[in-house]
Computed example of a mutant assay.
Amino acid sequence: MTALVRAPRIVTADADLHDGWLLVDDGLVSATGSGAAPTTETTTSVEGTIVPGIVDLHAHGALGHDFASCSADDARAAAAHHRSRGTTALIASIATGPVQDTVDALDRLRPLVADGTLAGLHLEGPWLAPARRGAHRPDLLHHPTPAEVDAYLAAADGALRVVTLAPELPGALDTITRLVAAGVVVAIGHTDATADQARRAVDAGATLVTHLFNGMPPLHHRAPGPVGVALTDERLLLECIVDGHHLDPTAVDVVRAAAPGRLVLVSDAMSATGCGDGDHTIAGSAVSVRGGVARLADGSSLAGSTITVADAVRRLLTAGVPVAEVVAAAAVRPARLLGRPVPLSVGAPADFVVVDHDGRTTAPTVPIGAARAVPASAHRSTSQEATP
């Protein structure tokens, strides 16, 4: 079946279509345009603005489930929560744990990558700087070894897509080279690196910065560190957690002004996402969630977020950031970094999110399949998260 989807506005990676339409064959976009459209048996009209489905490079779980330790079935439930909020491609982040536990998590989650539930796996730890550990247990942090790198790659068997590490650790630069050769995106994060050490990491193949400003020394005019390199080296994409807690809005504006075209929205969602306030665990550390904000139980650090990327999208749109810029940060750049087709591009999956006319909320993604039409009411947006 061929289906036509119409909306007052459709923003793709390459076009901003008013009175737009998508032609969908077997779940894939075969053509896009505006105004007069091809005649099909099935036409779906959508209220609001259609944008590509969200790609989240960094999420630890949801609904009480932590990807580092939960069962495959619970991981599916957590991924479904993110998808219901518009995240059509999710990288499952595995926080620092004992080496064997990490190997087991990679092995357990690998089938979910093979069947498309997850877009890949992300190791955030154990190769992190103790001084910038955040919620990661200091006794589990250590520098990488070739044997450990090989163990993780073998357990993931192609499913490992992102690794965050501190480039100043012994063996880190060789590890970057090894991982990049294996097709893994390397991110600089949880690091106490100097600017020179950060630059060497980029020269070795690092292309991403994990939650910029968080888990690293602040920018200083005589010691710019990883933040200075992130803002000035155009080879890097920059993760930002836009939840109203990890970054002041002015810091987000700094990234947009100093590094145009390089912002990537991530959730860094921990297991409490989709739950109420309470006590949880991440990376072996006790976490308290109060007012939707996750902190270590001792109050010393934030411990991930309780949002999905749709909430960050809403914040930026409400702040007046152009829709096309938000689309690039939430979908286009992360998809291209992973080597995935960008949703709504011709030949790519017809996964999309609908932004209401007020520009503040996003609707769940609904794939348009060959077997059925999706009623417009299924796309109407509602507020999805209880957290601010």
Rank of each mutant, 00 (worst) to 15 (best):
M1V: 07
M1I: 05
L4H: 03
A13P: 08
D14Y: 05
D16F: 00
G20D: 00
L22D: 02
V24F: 01
D25F: 03
G27V: 03
L28I: 13
G33K: 01
T39Y: 03
T40P: 00
E41P: 00
T49N: 05
L57I: 06
L57C: 05
S69L: 13
D74K: 09
R76Q: 09
A77M: 13
A80W: 11
S84Q: 13
T87Y: 13
T87Q: 13
A89I: 02
A95S: 14
G97W: 13
P98W: 09
L106I: 11
D107V: 12
D107H: 15
L109C: 11
R110M: 05
L112V: 05
V113T: 13
L121Q: 07
G125W: 11
L128S: 07
A135P: 02
A135H: 02
P144V: 09
T145P: 06
P146D: 06
D150Q: 15
A151Q: 13
G158E: 12
R161C: 00
V162D: 04
V162H: 03
T164Y: 07
P167N: 07
P170H: 05
D174A: 11
T175C: 14
I176N: 08
L179C: 12
V180T: 14
I188N: 02
A193N: 08
A195W: 04
R199A: 14
A204F: 08
G205F: 06
T210W: 07
N214I: 09
M216R: 07
M216P: 08
P217I: 07
H221T: 04
G225T: 06
V229H: 10
L236Q: 05
L236Y: 04
L237A: 14
V242D: 11
H246G: 11
P249A: 08
P249I: 10
V255Q: 08
A257S: 15
L265V: 05
L265G: 02
T273D: 09
C275F: 02
G276N: 00
G276A: 10
D279L: 13
G284S: 02
A286V: 11
R290T: 15
G292H: 04
L296E: 12
A297L: 09
G299L: 06
S300R: 15
L302W: 10
T306A: 08
I307N: 03
L317E: 07
V321F: 11
P322R: 06
A328G: 13
A329G: 12
A331L: 10
R340I: 12
L344T: 03
L344H: 00
P349E: 01
A350S: 00
D351I: 03
V355E: 04
D356P: 07
G359Y: 04
R360E: 14
T362G: 15
T365I: 00
V366D: 12
I368C: 10
A376S: 15
A376C: 07
H379M: 14
T382A: 14
S383R: 15
Q384N: 14
A386G: 15
P388W: 14
